[in-house]
Structure formats: C-alpha cells, structure tokens
Amino acid sequence: MRRRLSIVLTLLTVMMLGVIVTGLSFGEPGAAPMDDYFIENSQSESGANNVVTAVLFDYRGLDTLGEAAVLFTAALGTTLIFRRRRDD
C-alpha cells in the first residue's frame, strides 16, 4: 500500500515538474540583463577575468559568507555527533 502510494507520488511529482519545464526555452535565457551587466563590467569593476569568481566573491559576497558558514556548521555538527562521551 505504502509502496504503491510512493510510486503514485513520484509519478505525480515528475509530471508536475515536466509541465513546469516545458514552458522554459533552452539556449535563450528568459531574464538575462543582470548577467549581461556582470559580464560587461566585471573586468572594469572588480578586475577579475573570471566572471563567476567576480560574482561569487564580489557582487554576491554575502552569499559566499553564508555558504562558508554552512560548511563550518556542518563540520561542527559532525564533530559534535562523534565527540568522546564521558560516560563510555
């Protein structure tokens, strides 16, 4: 019963995603002005040849700070799970 419900749920999700995806066009992004600005001005504004790095560390730096914090928290949590307990 549960197995059949899981299969139906998976098929429904896949169909929903498929309906959403057919509205998108491949090869011609719908909203590009922000990226065009980054590509045109990243060399003159941040001096980096690699536009992805310029976006990652300059334009959207706070994003990267949060990402580094997530990695730090994951390491902290993993260490806490395997800490040496005093009672055993």
Partner: peptide, 14 residues
C-alpha cells in the same frame, strides 16, 4: 550566464 554558475557552486557545497 554567470550568476547561475555561482549558485551551482553554492549548491554543491551545501
């Protein structure tokens, strides 16, 4: 586009 690639790096790390 470059912003989606930066978001991909974020997604991989998370």
């Amino acid at each position: 586009l470059s912003t989606v690639q930066a978001m991909t790096v974020t997604n991989i790390v998370i």
